[in-house]
């Protein structure tokens, strides 16, 4: 379990303006969380804190009982928590698709036979076999996003954090990435935290967390959180289209 306990943090040099203010929540393997908040609300800072990239002023974060700190347990924390950026180009390091998949495993010192097995499984499951020896930058945007997802999958993290994974994709690739998330990631009791601006993407999540001005202002199931429509609008957050339509149809009876 990831435990975020009363966390307050500020960027170095910014003493008075805290980016995170007294945040607490738990995140279990197998759970699917959505993290929402308008631009500048602290979402990225929170992710940095969980990965030990951000010193805390107050509070603690633990990942499976390993305390997170700038110089503590980084290996244990980061092998458990996978992070995928919005733009896959920010995380491609190797010269071929195969090597890209093996890169993380080499760093984790996974034995060669096991590495071979996992890379091959990833090539099949993420439909990348045809590109195994190609350079990652020659792949299309959707293919690169699949590769980024596969490169995290091979490392078997317990938690996966995705920063707007579909915002740059066309509808077809978007569906494919969401399907892979459901089938390959969700199926393995991995905890998934989806950072998104799109309320329609979070309706199937177990919980939605909403950050506003560095504070955690909502934490609950989507159908309950999104009932606070006016407050959410004030925080710059939209509600799912389906709920909007239900509200519009509330009181409208079909003609007979």
């Amino acid at each position: 379990m990831i435990k975020v306990n009363n966390v307050t943090a500020a960027y170095p040099g910014n003493v008075s303006n805290f980016s995170l203010k007294g945040i607490s929540f738990d995140f279990k393997p197998g759970e699917r969380l959505a993290l929402m908040g308008c631009n500048g609300s602290g979402k990225t800072t929170l992710i940095h804190a969980i990965l030990g990239l951000m010193p805390l002023k107050l509070g603690t974060i633990t990942v499976d009982d390993y305390k997170v700190g700038p110089h503590e347990n980084l290996f244990e924390v980061r092998r458990r928590v996978g992070l995928m950026f919005q733009n896959p180009d920010n995380q491609m390091v190797a010269t071929t698709v195969e090597r890209e998949l093996a890169f993380g495993l080499e760093n984790l010192a996974v034995p060669p036979e096991e590495m071979f097995y996992r890379v091959n499984a990833a090539l099949d499951r993420f439909n990348l076999r045809a590109y195994a020896t190609k350079e990652p930058h020659l792949l299309s945007g959707g293919e690169r996003q699949r590769l980024a997802l596969a490169a995290i999958w091979v490392m078997h993290p317990r938690y996966l954090i995705l920063d707007e994974p579909t915002s740059l994709l066309d509808p077809g690739n978007k569906r494919e990435v969401l399907r892979l998330l459901d089938e390959e990631m969700g199926g393995r009791s991995m905890g998934i935290m989806l950072i998104t601006q799109l309320p329609d993407e979070v309706v199937d999540c177990d919980r939605v967390l909403i950050l506003h001005d560095g504070k955690l202002v909502f934490d609950g199931p989507p159908d309950i959180v999104f009932k606070n429509r006016q407050q959410l609008v004030d925080f710059g957050i939209d509600i799912p289209t389906k709920m909007k339509i239900e509200q519009m149809l509330d009181g409208y009876s079909d003609p007979f």
Binding site: D170, P171, G172, N173, R175, D200, T241, I245, D254
Partner: peptide, 28 residues
Amino acid sequence: GLEVPPTMQILESLRLGGRKLPANCFCL
């Protein structure tokens, strides 16, 4: 590789569920 706008998809599923909404609703 495109898709029907999400809003239209939801309206369509409501129609299939028996709500009498016009077919020419494309957006809110």
